[in-house]
Design a protein around this nucleic acid. Structure first.
Length: 715
RNA sequence: GCCGACCUAGCUCAGUGGUAGAGCAGCGGUUUCGUAAACCGCAGGUCGUGGGUUCAAAUCCCAUGGUCGGCUCCA
């Protein structure tokens, strides 16, 4: 094979400037990699995703080159293209890279790019490559090459002026020359373990991004800025939804406005629970350790648990420690173990097993669905906590379903249908499904795991849901279905989950009497739709940019007076709204109307109702909607009817309706609610389905220039 | 937990060895005003905390808490 794609393309005519590689079958290769003489090659353009990937990977090489020029002695490791850019990991002798360093590196990269040197590919033997990189002092590269099978060819790439080429082991492909690297930006530096293993040395990673044009790069950076404005931590502070304090790190305080939203989220679920046969329970926070020995949490989950200690236990330990005789040493050891006598619950499942096991159960009681909004505490290491999305104290829409083999499949189906109906209601359309299989640390037999993993995979197939298998990521008691949704900055968070558990019913020796009069063991499902309420709240805040739909909003109407003469009328408007269950407040301060509007808009109040002299006289209001802007003056009674209707808790479509939906799960952007019958007047209000969240259009204030761009999906 | 950065008034941020600042919010007054910020004044900080260096520390050094970006780990 001596023919290059460049030659093949040239036979078809001159090669366009923006061709960075070619596609041969499924492979993307560069223009100078030899291919079969009769290969069918199609150009890969700089602007298409595959082309951008080539550009970014090539940029990573140039960055590594720049780093080694500026910081001699720094070793290179790996540097792949990733979703929105690339990174390269370095072993730098004296600590990490500063922001100042990043600027210098970027300048150096521009200088390298300006020289327009070609990327060249060479092939050598494994042994020769090892010799070559050993001579360069690149220990990590040598380790990588040693990992290749014996006798395998090794390709490497160079760029740069002759005699000063920069060299990297690499499968490619790369752009023809550095000329194609038009727009480059280094974003941040961070530590990363070599090969991602915590016990390996910490390397220094630089993240960057690159595009085919400067305009595309600028657009991407603007998008990131826009996304940062939706960060739930920022909005949580601005909108007074929640706060943190260093006296309770990573444990959120939900403020009045945030609590109102959360309560609505829970109210909605309680209604669904009623429809679907769940029974809510409430269980203790602190247990004797024996519970978690039985459940397997102590052997498998201890590192994530808090252990409360009584003052007696501490005092006795201190006293025993003060004495210095043999008996005291024995006493001390005994007291020390007492310290861990109590444990704060990290999950609800053990309590629910106790409830199930508390009396003789009949098959007639199954499926038994126990729901629990109880607060959980999990010790999380300092570096992993993240706003409301990863906390140490949280609650879940947790429920455990005790079921028979026969009804298991039906229960899973029911879970999936309601899950998708719920998420569609909130406007989440991009949901990644993962099937997490048996971890190393686990309970139960392999047969149980085979069974449970198979059950879940079959249920997904039956629902027509594409999913990814993540081996070893399951819970210690059973495999998990995980439902992941992205935040504003495209970080993916697991929200809902469904887990099949054969292990805990066995550990707790749970049983029920079947219709045959014999004792049988139930199967347990652990399930949550929202997952952690706090995390769901975080993702929801970012999804809607702080502008909640009316039914969820902490305040639904702000009544604004034009001047003090309307205060009495305004107060009566607020009272009448409240009487109809609408969360309303009045702003009768001496501010100008413009200022009142600004304040209410900043707090994302869905409806403003302006009352001036005209409105007072006509018993009317002039509304303005967060979503639709100014609305015509409306009689008060009509306004109240309208808002009260929109403020009501939405209902999930019935199971029959969702059956149809579940067959098109993942279909984008369809409203859960068909448009209602509208009369003329309603039409003026530009009715949208009240329950669906307009995340893509009005989630950020209208004044923002790139309204749609803040959506994580549109990037 | 690891690597790096950051922490100044309620919030957003200036201030890099020599007397702690601004805007907004708050409070007091003036203004009564029609769709995104009226005007004047007042008050507010042992510069996260604890040590150290120095004649002198918000500023330099060490420790510690918290936060942020990643890594690892998870709802």
């Amino acid at each position: 094979m001596t023919t290059t794609p460049r030659q093949l393309l040239e036979q078809q005519g001159p090669i366009a400037d923006d061709v960075v590689a070619v596609r041969v079958g499924d492979r993307v290769v560069d223009l100078h990699t030899p291919v079969a003489d009769d290969a069918v090659v199609t150009p890969v353009l700089a602007s298409e995703p595959a082309g951008l990937k080539v550009i970014r990977h090539s940029t990573a090489h140039v960055m590594a080159d720049a780093v080694q020029r500026l910081f001699p002695g720094t070793q290179v490791t790996i540097g792949p293209a990733i979703d929105d850019g690339f990174y390269y990991d370095f072993d730098k002798k004296d600590g990490g890279f500063t922001d100042h360093d990043l600027g210098r590196i970027e300048d150096e990269m521009r200088a390298i790019i300006k020289r327009k040197s070609p990327f060249r590919r060479e092939v050598t033997t494994r042994e020769e490559a090892i010799r070559r990189f050993t001579a360069l002092g690149e220990a990590y590269k040598v380790e990588i090459i040693r990992g290749f099978p014996d006798g395998e060819e090794v390709s490497y790439y160079t760029h740069g002026e002759p005699g000063k080429e920069w060299l990297d082991v690499c499968a490619g492909p790369h752009v023809p020359t550095t000329r194609h690297l038009a727009a480059v930006k280094l974003t941040h530096a961070a530590g990363a373990y070599w090969r991602g293993v915590e016990t390996n040395p910490m390397l220094q990673r630089i993240y960057g991004t690159a595009f085919h044009t400067k305009e595309a790069l600028a657009e991407h950076l603007a998008l990131l800025e826009e996304a940062k404005k939706r960060d739930h931590r920022k909005l949580g502070k601005e909108l007074e939804l929640f706060m943190f304090h260093e006296y309770a790190p990573a444990m959120p305080f939900l403020l009045p406005r945030g609590t109102r939203v959360m309560n609505r989220l829970v109210e909605l679920l309680r209604k669904v629970y009623d429809d679907e046969g769940y029974d809510e329970v409430s269980t203790p926070q602190i247990f004797d350790r024996r519970l978690f020995e039985t459940s397997g949490h102590l052997p498998n989950y201890r590192e994530n648990m808090f252990f409360p200690v009584t003052p007696d236990a501490i005092d006795e330990l201190v006293l025993a420690g003060r004495r210095d005789d043999d008996e005291a040493k024995k006493l001390y050891a005994a007291r020390l173990s007492e310290i861990e006598r109590l444990a704060q619950k990290p999950m609800n499942c053990p309590s629910h097993c106790l409830i199930f096991g508390a009396k003789r159960r009949s098959y007639r009681e199954l499926p038994m669905r126990l729901a629990d909004f109880g607060r959980l505490h999990r010790y999380e290491r300092g570096g992993v906590v993240h706003g409301l999305a990863r906390v140490r104290s949280f609650s879940q829409d947790d429920a455990h379903i005790f079921t028979t083999e026969e009804t298991l499949e039906h229960e899973i189906e029911k879970f999936l249908r309601s899950f998708y109906a719920l998420y569609e209601l909130f406007g989440f359309t991009r949901i990644d499904v993962k099937l997490a299989t048996r971890p190393e640390k686990r309970m139960g037999t392999d047969e149980m795991w085979d069974q449970a993993e198979g059950d879940l995979a079959r249920a997904l197939d039956k629902a027509g849901l594409p999913f990814e298998v993540t081996p070893g990521e399951g819970a210690f008691y059973g495999p998990k279905l995980e439902f992941h949704v992205h935040d504003a900055l495209k970080r993916s968070w697991q929200l809902g989950t469904l887990q099949i558990d054969y292990a805990l019913p066995a550990s707790f020796e749970l049983g029920y009497i079947g219709s045959d009069g014999k004792e049988h063991r139930p199967i347990m499902l652990h399930r949550a739709w929202y997952g952690s309420l706090e995390r769901f709240f975080a993702v929801l805040i970012e999804h809607v940019g702080g502008a909640f739909p009316t039914w969820l909003s902490p305040e639904q109407v702000a009544v604004l007076s034009v001047n003090e003469a309307q205060e009495a009328y305004g107060m009566s408007v607020v009272q009448q709204l409240k009487a109809r269950g609408v969360r309303a407040y009045g702003d009768f301060s001496r501010d100008k109307l413009g200022a009142k509007i600004r304040n209410a808009r900043l707090m994302r109040v869905p409806y403003l109702a302006v009352v001036g002299a005209k409105e007072q006289e006509l018993r009317a209001v002039t509304p303005r909607s967060q979503r639709d802007g100014d609305l015509p003056q409306t009689p008060l009674a009509e306004f109240i009817d309208r808002v009260a209707a929109e403020a009501r808790l939405p209902s999930l479509p019935s199971l029959a309706e969702t059956r149809e939906q579940s067959s098109r799960l993942g279909a984008a952007n369809k409203s859960a609610h068909p448009p209602r019958k509208e009369d003329k007047r309603r039409h003026e209000w530009r009715q949208a389905a009240p329950a669906s969240i307009p995340g893509r259009t009005s989630a950020v204030p209208r004044s923002a220039s790139t309204t749609a761009s803040a959506s994580p999906r549109s990037a």
